[in-house]
């Protein structure tokens, strides 16, 4: 057994970026599924709690959670390593330096959005994953969404995520060696779409903050009452 190829993944620049890219894309896929689940909140208590019950009934859910945690940790660990190396090797001491138009707001802020997302993630997990589930999942989430402070944090978290993905999604493909005159424009556009859709998290929380769900329910109630008359 020659583990040279594994060593190359861990100890070379491109190997580490490979791990970062693969885990980043996996996390991107996860967050899209997560957004889909959040959209069920707008369909009402029954749909959302039904989905949560279905997830929890799966005997593999614990392993899926552990796997997801491992992907997160790998993404963070490789990012820290890569960043630490970059920090040591970056050109320094220029008296004057102008960026030449390659960087974007998203690419230049990857480290800061990463820290913001990580801080949000810790808060999010402590609050929801290990929070009080006795009132029911729908109640727990919507109650939080009616708190302006929570929604403020939530909106900031989703904006950081959108900015992070605006560079991260397309960058992952480049790192994996996928750059093609035909497909790269689509990859870049698709990456931006995924990034933009992260604002959906913010919109859903604001929807509940403004109690638009109550208004919708009132409307239904009134329609039903008129029809019954």
């Amino acid at each position: 057994m020659d583990l040279g190829f594994v060593k190359r993944v861990i100890f070379t620049s491109i190997g580490r970026k490979f791990v970062m890219a693969v885990t980043g894309l996996a996390l991107g896929a996860f967050i899209i599924v997560h957004l889909g689940a959040n959209l069920l909140l707008m369909k009402g208590e029954e749909s959302y709690n039904g989905y949560v019950a279905l997830l929890l009934a799966n005997p593999l859910i614990l392993y899926a959670e552990l796997g997801l945690a491992a992907i997160f940790l790998l993404h963070i660990a490789t990012a820290v390593w890569v960043r630490w190396e970059d920090w040591r090797n970056a050109p320094s001491g220029y008296e004057e330096r102008r960026w030449q138009g390659g960087r974007t707001l998203g690419s230049a802020t990857m480290l800061y959005t990463a820290i913001a997302i990580l801080a949000f993630l810790v808060y999010h997990i402590v609050d929801f994953r290990f929070g009080d589930h006795s009132v029911g999942f729908y109640q727990m989430v919507t109650a939080a969404f009616r708190d302006p402070v929570f929604v403020g944090i939530y909106v900031a978290g989703s904006l950081a995520l959108a900015l992070h993905l605006s560079h991260g999604m397309q960058s992952s493909f480049q790192t994996l060696g996928v750059n093609h005159p035909k497909y790269t424009p689509f990859i870049k556009f698709g990456g931006l779409l995924v990034a933009l859709s992260m604002i959906g998290f913010a919109l859903i929380s604001v929807y509940f903050l403004l109690e638009l769900d109550h208004r919708k329910a009132e409307h239904h109630y009134q329609v039903a009452a008129t029809e019954a008359r």
Partner: peptide
């Protein structure tokens, strides 16, 4: 001891 590529493309510019 060169740094890692973050796909910022300042080089190409």
């Amino acid at each position: 001891g060169f740094g890692n590529c973050a796909n910022e493309y300042e080089c190409e510019a």
